[in-house]
């Protein structure tokens, strides 16, 4: 290969993020006839999300797939919050279409001023609610539950609106937190419940599907700019074309994992009235849509399409 790039991600090498970057690597290799090789390095070997994002900006890492909550926090990329507004997007296919469309491209392009070339989106999975003691079936059941969240403003506002007691806890302590009862619940995707063995300590899942967990594939802007035009084009196309493929993969995988979890004794519940929860969080969406014009545009596009 003429060019070899190391792309990192912070998830385990059995996570959907690994599959995403591998899809990208394969597409790039095909489009360039093997002239560009992408080496995928997972398992946090190149650092966690924040370090990966910084590394790409600083040029110490070629590229990375980074979870979207990291972007507003560590790079001031406010527009990326659009991807996690509660209950705005409802299906994998819908999100894949928007991300592969003009708004998705605008969000990728907005990263350029921060020193990152945005190339693609790969999904970690729709988020649901996992609780350890009692099944959560109505809005009232959420009240006061100590719920582990990623402590960022958008998620804090969302979960306070629902009525839980959001707890900021390092991801590595969630397993023992659920085991001992330091926390009552966690908002999380199904595949992590399985891969992190969380079902051993908490057996009640409620399919809330409150928001997705996209990762954005980024590359150091200067390194990208220094490439010949045909290679640049191949990278951009490879990123663009694999979005739908990966979202379809994660969508199907979720069905498989749900069945798997059931067989392990996990109860899968539905909320009796999801609209109540949606109504509670609507003001948060309202508040955030004023933060960046791209967020407003994202919401408008989603609503127009559905």
């Amino acid at each position: 290969a003429d060019y070899t790039f190391k792309f990192g991600h912070a998830a385990s090498s059995r996570h959907a993020f690994q599959t995403g970057v591998e899809m990208f690597a394969k597409a790039v290799a095909e489009k360039t006839g093997g002239r560009v090789e992408i080496e995928v390095i997972g398992d946090r070997q190149l650092g966690d999300d924040k370090q990966l994002l910084e590394g790409v900006q600083l040029g110490t890492i070629d590229g990375a797939l980074v979870s979207s909550p990291t972007f507003p926090l560590a790079a001031g990329a406010v527009a990326v919050d659009a991807l996690q507004l509660p209950f705005v997007v409802t299906s994998y296919d819908q999100l894949a279409a928007v991300l592969a469309g003009p708004v998705g491209q605008k969000i990728l392009d907005s990263l350029s001023e921060k020193g990152m070339k945005g190339l693609s989106y790969y999904e970690a999975g729709l988020r649901h609610f996992l609780s350890r003691a009692k099944p959560v079936k109505s809005l009232a059941d959420f009240q006061g539950l100590k719920t582990r969240i990623v402590p960022i403003p958008l998620h804090k506002a969302t979960w306070e609106a629902v009525g839980t007691n959001p707890v900021g806890m390092p991801y590595g302590e969630v397993y023992s937190g659920l085991e001992t009862g330091v926390i009552d619940a966690v908002e999380i995707n199904l595949s992590s419940i399985e891969s992190e063995n969380l079902y051993q300590n908490a057996r009640e899942v409620t399919l809330t599907g409150h928001y997705f967990w996209p990762g954005i594939l980024i590359m150091n802007q200067a390194r990208f700019d220094g490439l010949p035009d045909d290679i640049k084009q191949a990278l951009v196309e490879a990123g663009h074309e694999t979005i739908a493929e990966h979202y379809a993969f994660v969508r199907d995988d979720e069905a498989r994992v749900a069945a798997e979890l059931k067989s392990k004794g996990v109860t899968i519940n539905q909320l009796d009235n999801l609209d109540e929860m949606r109504a509670r969080t609507a003001p948060v969406v309202e508040q955030w849509s004023a933060k960046d014009p791209l967020i407003g545009e994202f919401i408008a596009t989603v609503r127009k399409g559905s």
Binding site: G47, K50, Q51, G55, L58, G59, T60, P170
Partner: peptide, 15 residues
């Protein structure tokens, strides 16, 4: 430049 970044990352852990 990764030097200070990794030093911080090493210490910046709740545990």
């Amino acid at each position: 430049i990764a030097f200070p970044q990794r030093m911080i990352a090493g210490i910046d852990q709740f545990v």
